[in-house]
């Protein structure tokens, strides 16, 4: 039957597009291997101990956990054609809000609810301004960044708010089958994000809107409502990230999660998310986060200053985007009708 043959027609050069992200992910794995080798050369004493190596890998993942969850949300926003600069500030706000004495009096459930609600509502406010107030995403979320940090400082009186809740504080120290709880939370968030992006109508709408918002609108997709939901999702991830950070530090403060927005965006980009929208993968973003975390870890092990570390991170972002552009250019050349 002809309908069947067209579905299972043999592959051609365009088959390379799904593997495009595979190559990139392999490249990021390669970077991780290189970082590992450098570590082994610098500190053969540590890397000789296999228990230490396994534990260090878990430390790398644990350090990546909170920013990783936030990056899932940011990846959705970018694929949907937007940008969210407010995630660091929303984490701080959600963290401070959920650790006030009043909130803490409701127990762990109240704190978690407060963090997630504050994050989601602030994210939805971003979405409202962008989708219905027609603000440029850059401006709207920049304003939110400033305002949310301000509100967080106001609530906390610029004091560090210590969490007295044993359940919350215990999350970061709990291990299940040897794996830190925070890493499990990240894995679950990434898995849910992957399913949401690749297997649901929500994900399909996200890609459609990021690829061509006007075409999506004229196809009957409610672009505004979906845009609102994307920023709310990003805010939700910030709420979860806030709990994770509070648990790690057993406290929250208005200056927490500084520059997380840049780390999250950079991770998404080196993971292959197009800043112009329409294309990106959760797996790539997670690799991006882990690479950054591994660099931080390596510098700590080697006792090198963070200044150098930031320069290396900057270099990696530039390199990743350069590679992306070269590959993308060759790809668009093929797309173009001869």
């Amino acid at each position: 039957m002809t309908a069947q043959t067209s579905v299972v027609e043999r592959g051609g050069w365009w088959r390379t597009i799904p593997t495009e992200s595979l190559w990139r992910n392999l490249g990021l794995v390669g970077v991780l291997v290189v970082l590992f080798v450098i570590g082994a050369i610098i500190r053969p004493d540590l890397y000789g101990d296999s228990d230490w190596v396994v534990n260090n890998m878990l430390v790398i993942l644990q350090q990546a956990a909170a920013i990783g969850v936030v990056t899932v949300g940011v990846t959705f926003v970018i694929i949907g054609g937007g940008i969210d600069l407010s995630v660091g500030a929303l984490i701080a706000l959600a963290g401070v809000w959920s650790t006030t004495l009043a909130t803490q009096s409701y127990g762990a459930g109240g704190m978690i609810f407060a963090a997630i609600a504050v994050g989601t509502i602030a994210g939805a406010l971003n979405g409202l301004l962008i989708a219905y107030g027609r603000l440029v995403p850059f401006i709207a979320t920049l304003a939110m960044l400033v305002a949310a940090r301000g509100l967080a400082a106001q609530i906390s009186g610029k004091q560090t708010q210590v969490s007295g809740n044993q359940f919350i504080n215990g999350i970061a120290t709990t291990r299940v089958a040897g794996i830190p709880m925070l890493v499990i939370i990240l894995a679950v968030a990434a898995a849910l994000g992957w399913v949401l992006l690749n297997r649901t109508t929500f994900g399909r709408r996200t890609v459609a809107i990021g690829s061509n918002a006007e075409a999506a609108r004229l196809a009957g997709i409610n672009v505004r409502r979906h845009t609102l939901l994307l920023y709310a999702l990003s805010g939700l991830c910030c709420g979860i990230g806030a709990i994770m950070l509070t648990s790690l530090a057993t406290s929250a403060q208005a200056a927490a999660a500084e520059l997380y927005e840049l780390d999250a965006i950079a991770a998404a980009i080196i993971g292959g998310t197009l800043l112009s929208g329409g294309r990106g993968t959760i797996v790539g973003s997670m690799f991006g986060v882990i690479v950054f975390s591994a660099i931080t870890n390596l510098f700590a092990i080697a006792n090198l200053p963070t200044e150098v570390q930031n320069m290396v991170k900057g270099g990696i972002i530039v390199l990743a985007v350069l590679i992306q552009q070269i590959r993308f250019r060759s790809l668009t050349a093929l797309f173009r009708k001869p």
Binding site: R204, V207, A208, S211, N212, E214, A215, A216, L218, A219, G220, I221, G278, R279, F335
Partner: peptide, 17 residues
Amino acid sequence: SQALLLAEPVYRNITLT
């Protein structure tokens, strides 16, 4: 500019609505 998702597969363009 108004109808197609150029980088997306044909079937996703056909089933966009």
